[in-house]
């Protein structure tokens, strides 16, 4: 399972595909203060990205994968901050 839902943190690991979209969306709706643990994330599907951008949850642990880290800091974080 690339995505595990803890009490108030969603942990995304590896490549997270579009099939996790419904669950992630519902979880974020149910947990408006839910946080994101991206430590092990290497890729998220565009649909998941949209959910994250729309909700802009706080990131509890930043990505470690160098490529995804760069994507996150250069291209995604900017969008979350302006929200």
């Amino acid at each position: 399972m690339p995505i595990t839902y803890k009490t108030n943190v969603v942990v995304m690991e590896g490549v997270c595909g579009i099939e996790d979209g419904d669950e992630l969306l519902q979880w974020l709706i149910d947990h408006p203060k839910g946080k994101l643990n991206l430590k092990q994330t290497t890729h998220i599907h565009t649909a998941l990205l949209q959910i994250i951008l729309c909700h802009s949850p706080t990131v509890s642990v930043s990505p470690e994968d160098s490529s995804f880290k760069r994507l996150w800091s250069d291209s995604i974080e900017v969008l979350m901050e302006t929200e």
Partner: peptide, 19 residues
């Protein structure tokens, strides 16, 4: 460089169609 641009303002999360 990759820049991601939302084409519209995001709706509230409960009316989002992520697909």
């Amino acid at each position: 460089h990759l820049r991601i641009v939302p084409v519209a303002k995001w709706p509230t999360i409960d009316s989002l169609d992520p697909y």
